[in-house]
Design a protein around this nucleic acid. Sequence first.
DNA 1: GATTAAACGAGACGGTACGTCTAGTCTTGAA
DNA 2: TTCAAGACTAGACGTACCGTCTCGTTTAATC
Lengths: 224, 224, 224, 224
Amino acid sequence: MTSAPSPARRPGASRTGRPRSADADRAILTATRAALVELGWGKLTLGDVAARAGVAKTTLYRRWAGKNELVVDAVAALFDEHLELPDRGSLHADVEGVVLQFAALLERPETKTALMAVVAESTRDDALRDRIRSAIVDRQKSLVLLGRERAQLRGELPREEDGAAAARTADLIFDVIAGAVVHRTLVSAEPVDAEWARGFTALLVGGLTAVAVPGAAGGRAPDA
Amino acid sequence: MTSAPSPARRPGASRTGRPRSADADRAILTATRAALVELGWGKLTLGDVAARAGVAKTTLYRRWAGKNELVVDAVAALFDEHLELPDRGSLHADVEGVVLQFAALLERPETKTALMAVVAESTRDDALRDRIRSAIVDRQKSLVLLGRERAQLRGELPREEDGAAAARTADLIFDVIAGAVVHRTLVSAEPVDAEWARGFTALLVGGLTAVAVPGAAGGRAPDA
Amino acid sequence: MTSAPSPARRPGASRTGRPRSADADRAILTATRAALVELGWGKLTLGDVAARAGVAKTTLYRRWAGKNELVVDAVAALFDEHLELPDRGSLHADVEGVVLQFAALLERPETKTALMAVVAESTRDDALRDRIRSAIVDRQKSLVLLGRERAQLRGELPREEDGAAAARTADLIFDVIAGAVVHRTLVSAEPVDAEWARGFTALLVGGLTAVAVPGAAGGRAPDA
Amino acid sequence: MTSAPSPARRPGASRTGRPRSADADRAILTATRAALVELGWGKLTLGDVAARAGVAKTTLYRRWAGKNELVVDAVAALFDEHLELPDRGSLHADVEGVVLQFAALLERPETKTALMAVVAESTRDDALRDRIRSAIVDRQKSLVLLGRERAQLRGELPREEDGAAAARTADLIFDVIAGAVVHRTLVSAEPVDAEWARGFTALLVGGLTAVAVPGAAGGRAPDA
DNA sequence: GATTAAACGAGACGGTACGTCTAGTCTTGAA
DNA sequence: TTCAAGACTAGACGTACCGTCTCGTTTAATC
């Protein structure tokens, strides 16, 4: 899964003059990730990023409006590269797969540091929240939607008629998966290992099945 | 639920000299919460907090090492005051209760802003993480443990023999509840309303029951 | 008598980047003198100087290392502007002229306040002492040397053959003149009026003549 | 020459309560001199002095109004102890003696640092100037008066009839001696050695004699 | 090939907050 | 009442970054 290259937003891109260096974009984003790992969000300074990238501060500010925007772009690239959902054959396997994949991403030092910081900042900045949503959150959510679709095709989960209700259920599942992994990783600060993933998957799939067929729980019981 | 007063960490609290003013502690924590709501984490300055509290900056720095420590203490007090778990008669009702209560707390502007910021910072600072854990996380987790205990007494959930496994299960449940609420509130930025709480509770209780009695889930249908 | 402009010491003055504003230099030095007169050395704060000059504190610190350096430069400009020695026709008249001129300078509030403070500080800081010497002391001493040269041309004083001895004598005369005026003005805190200048001149010229022609002092009586 | 012990100014010394410790006074003054030598005026802090003296800051403030007063007292004690003028038999020898003695005092690190600093401060503070005058300056001046008196008794200098004129002459001589030594020591930062003292004495005595008997300089020519 | 408009590096600029320091005062309990 | 201890208010210190602004210098697309 790879999306449009995030760099430079040039509203009225002119035709003449020296074009912006693509090298600079790359160098800046790479330097941002490196600095993030070394220093953390709080001590990350744009002057330092520019110096690492071998670029003047003005060049950096010509392309990004500030720290938040820059870091979101730098981190979003990682989410682009590392999220995908091959069909593992069952709802159970797919859930476990997505949990482990998401956890692996969150345990990288640059994402661990950056994600929470950017999200924290987004509680005060609607534009930033939208940016995070489209660059990061929605990419994760699409995996959950895809997995659910497959489970419905396989008959593991019923297909909901009401579109709005279906969307609400999808959101709920997404919040549960992403939330549990984030909380385990960043707040509880414990690793998401195979055992935890197995337990979580059993709980979630059990819940989904129980809710889907209330009173007569699951034809296909999870193989726990 | 009310715990020890968080104030002043004085390593070798001496017997002589003028004692620290308890008024100052109160004024500073109150001012911190107010400033947090008005300005948000990023624009919160300790000089401003001191001015609001009618206190010199040095007095503030004598008691807290920095912004993080101060804000954790200021916010932790809210968690002390606003978390409790009356027995609502069933696992289902207890889960729904704890979800709504936790969400209400997280939707207060001061906690919303502060919690993520502090957690973000804690990814780089072990001392801060421990502080958060003991001041905030553990208080929430104790509610989950209490609810589970009650459910086991009622016979809604089996009592696990293996202590370590029991602890792991408790951690899992806690990460799922807290994570889902946090993610819904702060990342998805959608309200935790009665409908969402109902859906989440059904999913979680369904999962717990299915996992606990695999192959014959249910009995007590999750409709409160 | 006007020497090189004292401004900014930029070790390896670079060719690139935005050049330093010359206006800022002027504004800062002017503001420093004004603040010195109003507040005195002890209450002079660099933040206040910066504010008066309409300049950021950082701009000030970029150019001067601290209070001492700044004030020396600010005051040195006055010594540049106000010291000169027109030929008054006789040793006697020249001495009286230089005494009155130096006293007038020392009685200006900004010099009175600053000179002693800076000199006091210089007892602990060799770099500062060198700075004072080249910016202030040497300018005064050159007047004394000039006056002596003229007196020798006129035949009022003998020309010393031994260069080292001549230099020692010049230093001695300088210490006597400058020391007496400084002590009268700043320690005894009495005015250097025409009468005092006349008495001092008689004493000094008498001494010089007596020493130069021991046993037969005078010839030219010291009554101008 | 030893004067009243300068310490503690207790306006209405009370009869009851714990008496003030005399040890404390001594310890504070000694600590002040030590700190002055080590740190210089600018970095001398009263907190540090109190700590060195093994005394609480309050004790210090109970006895002296501030830094200036304390340092003047601490230094004045040295002037008490080290100034005296034995009769050396001639004006010439007496001048040389007083010059060397005063120079020796000024070259002690604690006086060198303190005297200028206190004098500098006194340009803004009349009370401080009076204090310096009575504690330091007048003690020096009395030596000059004494030496002049002796010279008049010996017939080396004429006795002036006009009291006011006599006082003016005495002041002038004092400013020349003290000023030259101070300027040589602190501004020119050169040592007052035997050679300099000889040259200065010749100049001054020559001047005094020439002025006293204008047109027929000195019966007793200096033996330079 | 000359022109030209924008990007570039360097670094100074006005600001703001930082966390530390010192001055001088006040409050405690013990002597 | 003084003492040691140490908390208190007030405010300057010098530093670090922020984001903007000049400079003089490339650099490609257009003429």
